[in-house]
């Protein structure tokens, strides 16, 4: 066992081997971010935002889907305040992700949590939560995954801003990168039938609600309701099982 105390308080000590593990876990996120970031850079540049300004947004915000939405809102002349509010609603789902990660990050320093929170994106969350569940995953490796991904996101969006005009729209299936990423992240979460049932309930709820609620609020609502139903189902079947055993 490594000297956990020194490593996990975010003071920067990390061994070569565990850093390599961090990179190994992060590279698929980078592969997913690269085309997405390029696409974002292209779109933002076409909306008249300078590549470096694009990079600044990625650097400060680090939330892909809301950045896409922000640029399209900018394009249609929306006010700053309404874009910020939309961003808030779209990214509210991260409350759930951070809550879920909190189980694995107990007893860490405030400083570490402040630095860690910045990188709780959908993708980093999914990879880290999967690794934590498998066991042996450490907080320093988790935060490394966050910041490698951040680096890839900023880099690819700036690159997209500069080189984007040379990439024809829809080439190489770029449009599908994010969908494929989410599909795989979903596959990672299915540890048993109750998880699959919860995911399907959430999916259909979200699908239905997406027609009723504007913005991305339906994602949060559908997730909360589905997880609650999933928990009720799990309790119900657990009780029936013990009842059977008692018979």
């Amino acid at each position: 066992m490594h000297s956990m105390g020194a490593l996990s308080n975010g003071d920067g000590g990390i061994s070569g081997a565990s850093a390599r593990e961090g990179f190994k876990a992060a590279w698929p996120i980078c592969v997913g971010y690269f085309p997405t970031g390029l696409a974002f850079g292209v779109l933002a540049q076409q909306a008249g935002i300078h590549p470096l300004a694009v990079g600044l947004m990625s650097l400060v915000v680090f939330a892909g889907s809301s950045q896409f939405i922000a640029v399209s809102m900018l394009n249609s002349g929306a006010a700053v305040m309404s874009i910020v509010l939309t961003t808030f609603v779209v990214n509210l789902r991260h409350v759930l992700m951070s809550s879920s990660l909190a189980i694995h990050l107990r007893g860490l320093s405030r400083k570490f949590l402040i630095a860690f929170a910045f990188g709780v994106t959908d993708e980093c969350f999914a990879v880290n939560t999967t690794r934590f569940r498998l066991g042996g995953w450490r907080s320093d490796q988790a935060i490394l995954v966050n910041y490698i991904s951040w680096f890839a996101w900023v880099g690819s969006t700036v690159l997209g801003g500069y080189a984007g005009e040379f990439i024809p729209k829809g080439s190489f299936g770029i449009d599908y990168a994010l969908s494929a990423l989410f599909l795989c992240l979903l596959a990672f979460q299915l540890h048993g039938s109750i998880y699959a049932v919860t995911a399907v309930i959430a999916g259909f709820l979200s699908l239905g609600l997406s027609f009723l609620i504007s913005g991305n609020g339906y994602i949060v609502l559908a997730s909360v309701v589905a997880a609650t139903l999933g928990l009720i189902l799990r309790k119900y079947f657990a009780r029936r099982k013990t009842a059977h055993v008692e018979e």
Partner: peptide, 23 residues
């Protein structure tokens, strides 16, 4: 709460991907 949060990842990714694929 821990058990509820345990189901949240599956729920979120289901909620994210369905509208993307089916609309």
């Amino acid at each position: 709460l821990a058990e509820w949060l345990d189901l949240i990842p599956a729920a979120i990714f289901g909620a994210l991907i369905f509208p993307d694929l089916f609309t």
